[in-house]
Amino acid sequence: MKRLEVLKTYKIYIGGKFPRTESGRYYTPLNKKGEQLASVSQSSRKDVRNAVVAARKAFGGWSERAAFNRGQILYRIAEILEGRKLQFIEELIFQGSSKSNAEKEVNVSIDRFIYYAGWCDKYSQILGSVNPVASSHFNFSVPEATGVVGVITDQTSSLIGLVSLVAPIIAGGNTCIVLASESKPLCAITFAEVLNSSDVPDGVVNILTGSQEEMIEPLTTHMDVNAMSYSGISKNFEKQLKESSALNLKRVSIYSKDWIKSDNQDLYMIADFQEIKTTWHPIENIGGSSSFY
């Protein structure tokens, strides 16, 4: 007799826990063959708010981690992802990818984490500066994480779109709330399981599935979200995003890139979610001027 397969319940990911949406709602996206992918959580306004609270709570600890340690954790994500490669490939194929495209998407995703893992303890040296002010002061500028970032991922990809936006944000010490691809949500939640077993502190990445159109309003108008990252082509979303970001001057970054290309990753995507802090301190000019050295 054929063994009955055990199906996975796809949940959402908030503060390191896997609840179903508080609203109890679900939706059933279909693949190209018309098969139901799963009963996916249709997250609500309240889930968005809970995720923002979790992300804010995680921000202090994550942004103050040693840069080296953040790099280690991003590397760990890549390791765990590599170990679960087959599961992601299977999910991608089920959601409509060809085998070769699915393999490529997972490989690029893994390598992207390796790439950003390496940046963690280097970007400050490139983005920071010591400034030769004319007065008698020591003056230097360093990048610091912007804070809590709302992420709206590409509709068209299940994994690489999410990875490409999230990796530079968390490499830079930010925490985030991610709205997963609405039509291809499976990899986002499986990726949450990877994060959950990769030493990433609870709340650093929070992932919600459901209607992007419904969640974009509570996310972009939330006064405790500092920045937005959007990848997609909807001009309406883009406008709404910018308009509501004006409420508390969120920093908005909009990308339109083919994430599967291996060179669509760089330092400046980290820089997009950094604030430059400049510190001054007087130099006391007493003594030393006549010494030989």
């Binding site: 500066s129 400034n131 002061h137 003056n139 500028s141 508390n248 802090k277 510190t279 001054w280 007087p282």
Partner: peptide
């Protein structure tokens, strides 16, 4: 965006100036 330690209100063309949060975004200088 700017921390003055044991000094205050100092400005210089080489020194980036600008804020976090609702003080705006982008830097001027440097």
């Amino acid at each position: 965006g700017v921390i003055w330690a044991n000094t205050y209100n100092k400005f210089d063309p080489t020194s980036p100036f600008g804020g976090y949060k609702e003080s705006g975004f982008g830097r001027e200088g440097g």
